[in-house]
Design a protein around this nucleic acid. Structure first.
Lengths: 205, 205, 205, 205
DNA sequence: TATGAATGAGCATTCATTCAT
DNA sequence: AATGAATGAATGCTCATTCAT
């Protein structure tokens, strides 16, 4: 009985590990080729199995994308919420949010690429409504920070925060397209350069 | 002058106009749904015809995308070259390139979206090799401007120009995703805000 | 009035001539590329017009093939009947039928090619039932000649006339595939060589 | 020997058998309806499956034809080469080549029909260039035999070997159009009748 | 007479998915 | 857990045909 239970335990763990492994592989492939352009066969092949075999682990291609994206977003908002709840001043909140964003790119690079490229398209599917919710929340968060910064004198008066928000949104995630873990700069260093550019400008003063 | 010639002319013109119209429609749909995810039937429907009818006007789905993208790039580089050949100083060159980029978004919005989203994928097709050439040229152009600016004191010393270039590239084009001709701000006004942000930063000094 | 009538007359004639011209062109193209593989556009283009324009002259692609084939068969059977009704002995009947066949190839080469290649396929269509009728008549004619020849001592006893008939049928028409009017040998010369081969064999005696 | 290997073997064999079965069916259908006129759905239906399912086994319609034709030609030339390398005199060489040809029709009837009907059209496709190569070799082989026969006195002087070759080529293969394995005459018997006709003529001497 | 634009059915092919083994 | 064979809907594309001009 006890060996049985242990088997069962280790099997459950092994299964979870296999799933995670497959999700990682799938995310990599979806990010590289695009979700729609990637065939289930390609994902399976990258995982060393045949097309049909993936269906033992997942219900559908869609549910693979679902798991990739939702686990990324869960992680992302946990990190953002930690920053927002820390009671920092506007400038530090801004900086920490940017830094956490680049750390997310470091930890979930393929998921971020998929999120960036496919949100608009997938969002029309009820199953992925949470993508649009997340984008709405993201917008509210940044607008709140920017608006607060204008009010409290952290940011320039006359700033079009709606516009700045859009640039922030795009620039932050788009970095997932070229970021490499083994690249010249760490995620934190990139965040630093980015913050300098955004906060102080690239021009000499 | 003879009626014959005029007939022929007007026919040729009508045909060219129809083509341009169809290309505009196709660009709109490709931009909205993604090139791969868009079916020829959808493009045709948006143009008020049936799938097969498009093939009277174009050889293939690919050739539609080709025409959209290559005419955009021709226009783009003509504008960039005008700026580069004008003998402006670094700061003005930088500003004018940014301004022209936003004007391009105004004139070729759907084409820019397609360029932004599909270049990587389409570029593997020899027919679209010019997309990669354009990206290479784009990179060289911006790096040259940024490096010159660092040398001549226009831009901060210590700037990672490789990194800044990436942010520039992405932010400029990504605006095509939300820009509306009838929006609150004109292309030139957006360029102005963008330049302030990039050059002077969003922080009070 | 009289000029009017003459116009009308000459128009009618011109029309008939145009039809014949178009049929000739179509036959040429069908023979070269195969009926099914030839598009109406290709036929039209070979005639110097656009696809749709052919439909002013003909009801359908099928009716073009119909006219080509039926006019060939009419001509063919007129010639065969002349031979059969001439009261010749078996050997001369045989020879004349072969000679007429090669003359038909000379006069209707493309039609013969189409007949040879497409009969089986087209024959399933009720409109082209006459093709199968013709083949039946053809078979009866040759079997009658061969059987009579065996009986009257013209041809070898022990000949499997059913088999010989098949070889005759195939070899005669198949020559349309390579015959050229401006070739080294005339139709009559080819018929002569063919007759020697069939009647006397190629072996020295 | 191990169960594993045997499993693998039997799977491989089963697969090869299924392929062969499907190729046979496809050949039958292509021969009956013509390659171009046959739809993939028709082939699939004849094999008891749906159109798309064929693509699990083959890359394309073209590759099905390719496999059918190339395996026939491989077999054909192996047989011809055996005859040519046997050091026979002209007459026996001639006879054996004819006999082998009819045996080929017996073994590869549908493939021969396809070869006969589609070579010209398919040959323009680089993938099927070997069809034209085969025809060239075939021509050289027969001309060599015929010319040698005229020189060594086996065949009549004054024979137009170019012409005779053409008749030979066509008559031999065209028999595939009507040959039935369960017919009145065996392939060897048909070859015998054919040889009598060609060598000695059908006329009494 | 002929053109040019469009139709709509049909084709080869792809691919997510199913399921017996 | 994974395989291999098959499904069936959808896709890009072709082509005979129509019809207003």
């Amino acid at each position: 009985m006890s060996p049985r239970r242990r088997d069962s335990e280790s099997t459950t763990t092994a299964r979870a590990e296999r799933r995670a492994e497959l999700l990682g592989t799938a995310a990599e492939v979806f990010a590289a080729r695009g979700y729609a352009a990637t065939t289930v066969r390609e994902v399976a092949e990258a995982a060393g199995m045949l097309g049909g075999s993936l269906y033992y682990h997942f219900d559908s291609k869609e549910s693979i994308a679902d798991e990739i994206l939702s686990s990324f977003l869960t992680d992302l908002w946990a990190a953002y919420d930690r920053v927002l709840d820390a009671g920092l001043d506007t400038r530090d909140t801004f900086q920490e949010l940017i830094i956490e964003s680049f750390r997310m790119i470091d930890r979930h690079r393929p998921a971020v690429v998929i999120y960036q490229n496919e949100s608009k398209h997938l969002g029309t599917n009820p199953r992925f409504a949470y993508l649009l919710d997340s984008q709405r929340r993201f917008r509210e968060m940044w607008l709140a920070v920017l608006d607060r910064g204008v009010l409290d004198g952290t940011f320039r008066v006359g700033l079009d925060t709606g516009l700045i928000y859009r640039f922030l949104r795009d620039t932050v995630w788009v970095a997932a397209g070229w970021y490499r873990r083994d690249g010249r700069l760490s995620a934190d260093e990139i965040a630093g350069q980015y913050l300098t550019m955004i906060l102080d400008g690239i021009q000499t003063t």
